[in-house]
């Protein structure tokens, strides 16, 4: 078996005879990412309506369904309408602490079977299996959003306690709730925020997965015919809440 030392020394030998025929430069990284991230957020706070409009356009361009409500209290009505139209009942949701609001009672009152995911790590393999089975049979998955990228119509979700990866993946219909505080304009800005999360700033959650979701799951592998919902959700809804969710 090749050891790390052997492997790296082979590379080092080669690197030392690098011809350097081409221009070379890594991207210039933010020196103080958290401070730059704050600046970006401050600037964006002033022009969020334009950013939101750009996001809506791109999100709809990738077959996302956009909704807009005034306050978080109005979200359950939108969710239950989506459920009714699909004759769906079972819903898994991120924990209220991760969503920023407890919508379970209102959703339950509207006739949905609501399964909130636990706030902390479930004890034991059996309990984890049980929760996964619920996500696997649910019709709807309700999540928050950590970034909404206008340039590409992308939702960024960070995994962690109370915010399982499967909520946005296993149910055929994913519904994401967001507000102006997560809107960003460009992939470049996302780069700064990611640097901040991993540097001198604070990440939205402590899980091991960051997922960029740009519309519903799709494939064109059979005769290039575009088909949605091959493994992930067939539908992705984004509900924009005008009044910031966490006040």
């Amino acid at each position: 078996m090749t050891t790390r030392a052997e492997f790296i020394s082979r590379i080092r030998e080669q690197v030392q005879k690098t011809p350097g025929r081409f221009s070379a430069a890594s991207a210039r990284r933010p020196q103080h990412p958290a401070a730059e991230a704050d600046t970006i957020r401050r600037e964006l706070a002033e022009r969020w309506p334009e950013t939101l409009e750009a996001f809506r356009r791109e999100f709809e361009g990738v077959a996302g369904v956009f909704h807009r409500v005034a306050t978080i209290d109005m979200v359950p009505a939108v969710v239950s309408r989506i459920a009714h139209e699909r004759e769906a009942r079972e819903l898994v949701t991120w924990h209220s602490a991760a969503l920023g609001a407890d919508l379970a009672p209102a959703l339950g009152a509207r006739g949905l079977d609501v399964h909130p995911m636990p706030e902390s790590e479930p004890g034991g393999v059996a309990e984890r299996e049980r929760l996964r089975a619920i996500a696997a049979r649910a019709d709807l998955g309700l999540t928050g959003v950590d970034l909404a990228i206008a340039e590409t119509g992308t939702l960024v979700l960070v995994s962690g306690a109370g915010r399982p990866r499967s909520t946005s993946l296993l149910p055929p219909c994913h519904i994401a709730v967001f507000d102006r505080t997560v809107l960003v304009e460009s992939l470049r800005q996302v780069g700064v925020l990611l640097e901040a999360w991993h540097g001198d700033g604070r990440p939205p959650a402590a899980g091991a997965a960051i997922n960029f979701i740009t519309g519903p799951s799709r494939t064109a592998d059979i005769e290039l015919t575009l088909t949605r919902g091959v493994h992930g959700p067939k539908e992705v809804h984004a509900i924009f809440v005008e009044q910031p969710i966490r006040g």
Partner: peptide, 11 residues
């Protein structure tokens, strides 16, 4: 596409 549907970053 501007981005593929899923960009998954695992750590």
């Amino acid at each position: 596409q501007k981005l593929s549907v899923y960009t998954s970053m695992v750590q």
